[in-house]
């Protein structure tokens, strides 16, 4: 095929690869600057810093109270993952197995929090949470973060549950399994791969969820990404390399989970909400 491509088409193909290459190159350089700077001593007007050191990590650890921030992040992400599974998976099961009046409307209600950008619904949500006295601490952050993740789990799990044969469940019932035993011994093992994929995606998205956490967090309930925002916002107060060290800590945290998630899901699923789950 390739040899017989007309000259015009070959030129076109090359142009596209140049664009993609240019984009990827700049993207990688952008990430690399942060990493290099976080390990650099003095970096003024040269390609690389004058020397390399790890001391910025120690100073970032102290200055930005990273142990506290990391603990908060872990608590928020853990709670969001568990709760969105507990709320989302049963709902997805109902949506996948039953046809009832108003199902299309219900699906729309579940779809809206994913389609409306967080900053748009985040401001009224934060207002309600502040008035109810829930915002400003970790509970409010968790509640706000659940708003897009519960529908996200439902959307991923519905097609996954639909492709499991309902006769398997009927067979378990025929052999005398009650609802609970059927759930634990039959459904859960069948659903496990889908739940794992959905919850890993929730995890990756929650680590990076800036807007909702930013709008609802108080000084003691900042997650890593919000703490990073405040550090960059107040740049100049502290050494730039220190901020970069914190950025690298954030990057490692989020990319590590991305790598784990990508063992179970396709990269396109992070965007297209799991049309081909499992």
């Amino acid at each position: 095929m390739r040899g017989r491509m007309p000259a015009g088409e070959r030129l076109w193909a090359t142009a596209i690869w140049v664009i993609v290459g240019f984009f990827v190159l700049n993207l990688l350089a952008l990430i690399a600057t942060v990493v290099v700077s976080s390990f650099g001593t003095r970096w003024l007007g040269t390609w690389l810093p004058a020397g390399f050191t790890t001391r910025w990590y120690a100073s970032a650890w102290e200055e930005f109270q990273l142990p506290d921030v990391l603990l908060t992040t872990l608590e928020v992400v853990g709670a969001v993952v568990v709760l969105s599974g507990v709320l989302g998976v049963p709902a997805a099961y109902a949506m996948a197995r039953r046809d009832f009046p108003g199902k299309a409307l219900l699906m729309l209600v579940f779809l809206l929090p994913l389609l409306v950008p967080p900053i748009t619904f985040g401001i009224p949500l934060a207002t309600v949470l502040y008035r109810a006295g829930l915002a400003g601490d970790i509970g409010g952050v968790i509640l706000a973060n659940l708003v897009p993740t519960v529908p996200f789990v439902i959307l991923i799990m519905v097609p996954f549950i639909q492709q499991i044969d309902p006769r398997v469940e009927s067979a378990a019932r025929v052999f005398g399994a009650g609802t609970f035993r059927m759930f634990v011994h039959v459904l859960l093992p069948l659903l496990a791969p889908g739940i794992l994929a959905a919850l890993l995606l929730v995890l990756v998205r929650t680590i990076a969820m800036f807007e909702l956490t930013f709008l609802t967090a108080g000084p003691t309930s900042q997650t890593l990404v919000v703490a990073l925002y405040y550090a960059v916002f107040a740049a100049g107060v502290r050494a730039g390399q220190s901020i970069d060290a914190m950025a690298v800590v954030y990057m490692v945290t989020s990319l590590l989970w991305l790598l784990i998630a990508l063992r179970f899901v396709n990269p396109t699923q992070i965007v297209t909400r799991g049309k081909r789950a499992g």
Partner: peptide, 14 residues
Amino acid sequence: TLGTVLVAEGMLNY
């Protein structure tokens, strides 16, 4: 995955 905040910090450097 990294999100806009990290990209912003990278762009400020790069």
